[in-house]
C-alpha cells in the first residue's frame, strides 16, 4: 500500500508517454522488422489480394549483395566522414577563435549559428544553384566564383560524379551544422574556470601543454555529444539530398533515399529492410554512448 502511494502517481503520470512511445516507436519498429522479412514487393501483396510469405533474412542478404545498395552505403560512409570531420573542425575553430574574446562576439555567434535556422529544403534549393556543375564559359554558382577570384583549378562538376558526388552534398550540411557545434564548444570553453588555466600557467605549462592537458580533457564530453549528434543526423540524411539532387539521381543516393524510392514503388519489404539496416547502423553509434553515459551517471 505504501509502495503504491510512492510509485503510483509517477507511474500514472508517465504512462501516457510510455504508451505513446511504446506504440509509435517500438511497436512500429517491430512491425517494420516483420515486414522486412516478408516478400511484399508490390502493392497488391500489401493490399492482400496477392499472397505473400515469410522469407526470413533473404531481403537483407539480397540488399547487402546488391551493388546499388553497396553504393548507397559507401555514399553514406563517405558523407558521414566528411560531414563530421568538417563540422567538428569548423565548429571547434570558430569556438576557439570566439573564446579568445574576439570583438563583436555576439554578432559572429549569430552569424555562424544562423544557417541552422534555415530549413534544409530552403538551403538545399540555394545550394543546388551554387553547386551548378557547368564549367568553363557557362559556369554559374561556386564555379563562377572560383573563376572570378582566379581559382579556376577548383572548378569541378560537384554532385555530378559517381564516386564523390555525395561529398558535394556534405558541404551545405557542414555549412548548416558548424555553427551549432561552435555553440557547443563555446559552452564547453566557457565552462572551464579561469582558475584552472591560471593554475596551469603558474605550474609552467606552455600554450600547447595547457590545451593538451587542461582544456581538451575538459572538452571531451562536449566533443563526444557533438559527435553523437552529428553522427545520427548524418546517418539519417535525406531532406538535403532530396532538395539538392532529388531521389532519382544515382550518384548521391544513400539508404534513406533508397528506402523512399522502394516505398513509393510498393516494395514495402525491401523498404522496411533498408529502414532496419539504418536503425542498426544508428544503434551501433548510439548504444555505446548510452552505456557510457549510464556508467558516468552511476559514478
Amino acid at each position: 500500500m505504501r509502495k503504491l502511494k510512492r510509485y503510483g502517481p509517477p507511474i500514472l503520470l508517465i504512462s501516457p508517454s510510455l504508451f505513446l512511445i511504446g506504440l509509435f516507436v517500438y511497436v512500429l519498429i517491430f512491425s517494420s522488422a516483420q515486414t522486412s522479412m516478408t516478400d511484399i514487393y508490390t502493392n497488391p501483396q500489401f493490399a492482400g489480394t496477392r499472397p505473400h510469405t515469410f522469407v526470413w533474412f533473404t531481403n537483407f542478404i539480397d540488399l547487402l549483395k546488391d551493388g546499388d545498395f553497396q553504393h548507397s552505403l559507401k555514399n553514406l560512409l563517405l558523407y558521414t566522414l566528411v560531414f563530421i570531420t568538417g563540422a567538428m573542425f569548423f565548429g571547434f575553430l570558430w569556438a576557439w577563435l570566439l573564446d579568445k574574446r574576439a570583438r563583436f562576439e555576439g554578432v559572429f555567434r549569430s552569424v555562424f549559428l544562423f544557417p541552422m535556422a534555415v530549413s534544409s529544403v530552403a538551403a538545399g534549393v540555394v545550394w543546388r544553384w551554387l553547386l551548378n556543375s557547368n564549367v568553363g564559359d557557362r559556369a554559374t554558382g561556386l564555379n563562377r566564383l572560383f573563376q572570378m577570384v582566379g581559382l579556376d583549378f577548383l572548378e569541378n562538376k560537384w554532385t555530378n560524379n559517381i564516386s564523390f558526388g555525395i561529398v558535394a552534398v556534405a558541404i551545405p550540411a557542414i555549412w548548416q551544422m558548424s555553427g551549432y557545434i561552435m555553440a557547443l564548444f563555446l559552452a564547453g570553453f566557457r565552462g572551464i574556470p579561469t582558475e584552472l588555466r591560471e593554475a596551469a600557467r603558474v605550474d609552467g605549462a606552455n600554450e600547447f601543454k595547457l590545451y593538451r592537458y587542461v582544456i581538451f580533457p575538459q572538452l571531451s564530453p562536449v566533443a563526444l555529444s557533438a559527435l553523437i549528434i552529428l553522427g545520427h543526423m548524418s546517418l539519417k540524411v535525406f531532406d538535403l539530398i532530396m532538395a539538392i539532387t532529388g531521389a532519382k539521381f544515382y550518384p548521391t543516393k544513400v539508404p534513406a533515399v533508397d528506402m523512399y524510392n522502394l516505398m513509393t514503388e510498393g516494395n514495402f519489404a525491401n523498404a522496411a529492410a533498408v529502414g532496419i539496416i539504418l536503425l542498426l547502423v544508428v544503434l551501433v553509434l548510439i548504444v555505446p554512448y548510452l552505456i557510457h553515459t549510464a556508467r558516468g551517471d552511476k559514478r
Partner: peptide, 20 residues
C-alpha cells in the same frame, strides 16, 4: 564547470529531439 557541460549536452539532446 560541471554545471556547464551537462547543460550543453542537455541543450544538444533537446535540439536533436526537437528535430525528430
Amino acid at each position: 564547470m560541471r554545471r556547464f557541460t551537462p547543460f550543453a549536452i542537455l541543450a544538444a539532446v533537446g535540439l536533436a529531439l526537437a528535430g525528430c
